[in-house]
């Protein structure tokens, strides 16, 4: 399915979605509270069938955080990027580890490095850093005089 077809299809299912143009793949923005519902649709709708979540990450935009999910359908071969803005002080979003199992590890990574709280995650702990680590290293305002390389 091409990007424009995908866009039409998605708008039929969720008229509230907004889209970004210009990138290689179709980008769509979703409210954090709507994400888990949309995720189920994307995964299970036979026309969309986005069964492969290949990249989950977070971006710190200084004013807010943004979760980025890259989805692909192994059946149809189309790709979709879903973004969701999060409040920087209290970033919370529903976990999709029940929809795509790979999300469990990727969300733990995002929690570890950005401090995003994934609601209903089965095992939300630090993944790379030690449990007593203070701060979220990949946020832009993180300072670590010992471990960080400054150029």
């Amino acid at each position: 399915m091409t990007s424009s077809e995908l866009k039409e299809q998605l708008l039929q299912l969720h008229p509230s979605l907004s889209f970004e143009e210009g990138a290689e793949w179709l980008h769509t923005n979703v409210e954090a509270v709507d994400w888990i519902g949309l995720a189920g649709t994307l995964r299970n709708n036979p026309i969309l069938s986005f069964d492969f979540l290949f990249c989950v990450t977070c971006v710190d935009w200084k004013a807010h955080l943004s979760m980025v999910y890259h989805l692909r359908s192994t059946k149809h071969g189309h790709t979709l990027v879903v973004k969701s803005k999060l409040n920087r002080e209290n970033p919370e979003i529903e976990s999709v580890s029940g929809v795509w199992r790979t999300a469990e590890f990727h969300e733990r990574e995002a929690y570890d490095l950005f401090g995003v709280k994934f609601l209903n995650h089965p095992d939300l702990r630090r993944l790379f850093l030690t449990d007593d680590w203070v701060g979220w290293p990949l946020r832009k305002d993180y300072e670590d005089p010992v471990n960080m390389i400054k150029l």
């Binding site: 990249c55 710190d60 199992r101 590890f105 990727h106 990949l138």
Partner: peptide, 22 residues
């Protein structure tokens, strides 16, 4: 993710081993 500067604003590496390990 580029903001137009000389350095990337954010880089994410989606590594194959990470998902395979899970």
């Amino acid at each position: 993710i580029s903001e137009g500067g000389m350095t990337p604003y954010r880089i994410k590496f989606r590594s194959p081993g990470f998902s395979n390990l899970s």
